[in-house]
């Protein structure tokens, strides 16, 4: 018997045959949902090998390492109740955690609330850039929900839709998109002008496809304004939730797109790195979850012309939904996505 886990973090034991069968079921679920190619037998064997090893920790073979970007880096230690400023935090990411990039972020991780404090953010970024060598992103979430009541001026679509006020909800979304674009472009411009190496639009699509549209259009505008700006677009879920239902970008309806489809639009808009997401099903096993995660992310990486970095953390990318992800699952997901998923980074 081999020790593994459920998606909720619970420890379970399975035979090697059961683990392989669950990986296969996960692969099938991914191919069925996203309409993508399956993994080969060799790739499934490789995943089964990674997930049946008795080791507590599994790593890639030398030479198969990839680039690590970490969103929200400069506030994560603060969340651990460590009393630390953002610049020392970034320095720790560089010199202690061996991250390949780092990200400055405000604790209120949305573009809208950063607007009034932008000058302070610029100063902090300028200071950070003097003392770091690695590329530093500035990141936040588009967070379209902040533009509807009670946080914004538009009627709340989440309240309108259940009342059957579909047209009103759609119009609200369309107005919210314009405001979000304006804020994202404003903040990103200022932070780029402060010297940031890149801008991260994180958890894109969390309020559905209008959120995704706002990010795509903000990316387009920024790329036109600053041709050398680097933009990372990180998603919030494996498919784009359809809250409006009729929003298109480049002739494609944005609702319901899976990672291999999302990345093509991100490319079209001008994104430089795409952060794909595959959600965890907490009631299924980790082998099942990694089967579908690797299948979806590999399909995404195969069609992409830009680097693809998968999100691998609490509840995404084959890692259980727990605040302290166990190293057995985390390291295996990390290795599996590098070696079988053939990604460019995490």
């Amino acid at each position: 018997m081999v020790q593994t886990r459920l998606g909720d973090g619970s420890t379970i034991e399975m035979t090697e045959e059961e683990i392989r069968a669950d990986i296969e079921r996960g692969v099938e679920d991914a191919t069925d949902r996203a309409n993508i190619d399956s993994l080969s037998e060799d790739e499934i064997d490789r995943l089964a090998d990674i997930y049946t090893r008795p080791n507590k920790f599994v790593s890639v073979e030398t030479g198969n390492e990839l680039v690590l970007t970490f969103d929200e880096g400069s506030v994560k230690l603060k969340r651990l109740a460590v009393s630390i400023g953002r610049i020392p935090d970034l320095q720790l990411y560089e010199r202690a955690f061996c991250s390949d990039t780092a990200e400055m972020a405000h604790i209120d991780y949305s573009y809208k609330p950063i607007k009034p404090i932008i000058a302070e953010e610029q100063i902090e970024m300028e200071q950070a850039l003097l003392t770091t060598v690695l590329p530093v992103f500035y990141g936040a979430m588009p967070n379209l929900s902040l533009y509807s009541q009670p946080d914004g001026s538009f009627p709340n679509p989440a309240e309108l839709l259940p009342k059957g006020k579909i047209k009103e909800a759609q119009e609200a979304y369309e107005g919210m998109v314009e405001h979000a674009i304006s804020d994202m472009v404003f903040v990103a411009s200022k932070m780029y002008e402060a010297g940031a190496d890149g801008i991260n639009f994180d958890t894109t699509g969390s309020a559905g496809e209008p959120d995704f549209l706002a990010t795509l259009r903000a990316t387009e505008i920024l790329k036109e304004k600053y041709p050398d700006i680097s933009i990372e677009m990180g998603m919030s879920g494996e498919f784009v939730l359809g809250m409006h239902g009729e929003i298109e970008y480049d002739g494609v309806n944005l609702a319901g797109l899976y990672p291999h489809e999302q990345v093509k639009l991100a490319e079209k808009a001008g994104a430089d790195i795409f952060g794909g997401v595959v959600n965890i099903n907490s009631s299924e096993t980790i082998p099942w979850n990694i089967g579908r995660t690797v299948t979806m992310m590999k399909a995404c990486a195969e069609v992409a012309n830009i680097p693809v970095h998968a999100n691998v953390g609490m509840g995404v990318g084959g890692v259980p939904i727990v605040e302290t992800p166990p190293v057995d699952s985390l390291s295996r997901a990390s290795a599996a996505l590098a070696e079988v998923g053939k990604l460019d980074g995490l």
């Binding site: 949902r33 839709l161 259940p162 059957g164 579909i166 909800a169 759609q170 559905g208 498919f239 784009v240 939730l241 359809g242 809250m243 409006h244 239902g245 009729e246 609702a255 319901g256 797109l257 899976y258």
Partner: peptide, 15 residues
């Protein structure tokens, strides 16, 4: 659940 139908359509189906 599969992203093949969206919330506004869902509302119509519910009606």
């Amino acid at each position: 659940d599969r992203g093949e139908l969206f919330l506004p359509q869902l509302m119509g189906c519910a009606e």
